[in-house]
Write a protein that binds this DNA or RNA. Structure first.
Length: 227
DNA sequence: AAACCATGCAACCGCGAATCT
DNA sequence: CAGATTCGCGGTTGCATGGTT
């Protein structure tokens, strides 16, 4: 099918968001709620494509974001959910209030993968790494070669991410019943097809939002925002 | 002190799914 | 029903920062 570009790239900003852009986006969503991302930038007076606005809102500006460090419980929950769901980050995020799919994805790639490898567990299959590959598995991994160091050893059965239809029947369904934190692990996920454009509750000001980042709050400098 | 390397995170890109006309 | 449009997801990249040599 024909695909129209999501935006006119010649007239859109790219890269880090500025404080002003953030404010415009927040103000607009405060007033109108999350609606049509396609038309939002223009309506909000932003030189961004809708996609970019959506991402910025979901991953950073949303008032209900928890931010801060992941707890051990969250770690365990992510691992458990990943075993079941594979790289379905949005579904995993749906089980972790205040966390975004992007955040979890990043956290998985930077922390949990390594953690599992250190335990001798293949982060893709969640099975013990056989000796041959374990020898190749680095304890200190480089950026990309993690992926090169382990292989699927699922044989004919599927790995979680090779098939969306897979996680219904294979032994991945043998979900470890006890789960950390008492968070709902019922995976009969029925996401609303499309969230109705409901005005979402927003904090009164940005300070409130930033204060919710927790004591481990990332310093402002951590955000590549061009102020 | 400077150069280099490793790490972590925000943001972008491309694609498929869902919905609309 | 087919094509067009929009949304949402997952993979990947770019860059800032911190650590090491």
């Amino acid at each position: 099918m024909g695909r129209s570009p999501c935006c006119e790239k010649a007239h859109t900003n790219k890269g880090a968001w500025t404080k002003e852009e953030d404010q415009r986006l927040v103000a607009y969503i405060k007033a109108h709620g999350e609606g049509c991302w396609r038309s939002l930038p223009k309506a909000a007076g932003l030189l961004r494509c809708g996609k970019s606005c959506r991402l910025r809102w979901i991953n950073y500006l949303r008032p209900d974001l928890k931010r801060g460090n992941f707890t051990e419980e969250e770690d365990d929950l992510i691992i458990t959910l990943h075993k079941i769901l594979g790289n379905k980050w949005s579904q995993i995020a749906g089980r972790l209030p205040g966390r975004t799919d992007n955040e979890i994805k990043n956290y998985w790639n930077t922390h949990i993968k390594r953690k599992l490898l250190a335990r001798g567990i293949d982060p893709k299959t969640h099975r013990p790494i056989v000796v041959a590959t374990a020898a190749a598995a680095p304890s200190s991994s480089h950026r990309q070669d993690d992926d090169d160091d382990y292989d699927y050893d699922l044989g004919p059965s599927c790995s979680p991410e090779t098939s969306g239809a897979c996680h219904h029947s294979d032994d991945d369904d043998s979900v470890p019943a006890p789960h950390p934190g008492g968070i709902d692990l019922n995976l009969s996920i029925s996401p609303p097809p499309r969230a109705p454009p409901s005005p979402s509750p927003l904090p009164d000001d940005e300070d409130a939002r930033r204060n919710t980042k927790g004591q481990a709050a990332r310093p402002e400098a951590m955000h590549p925002v061009k102020y």
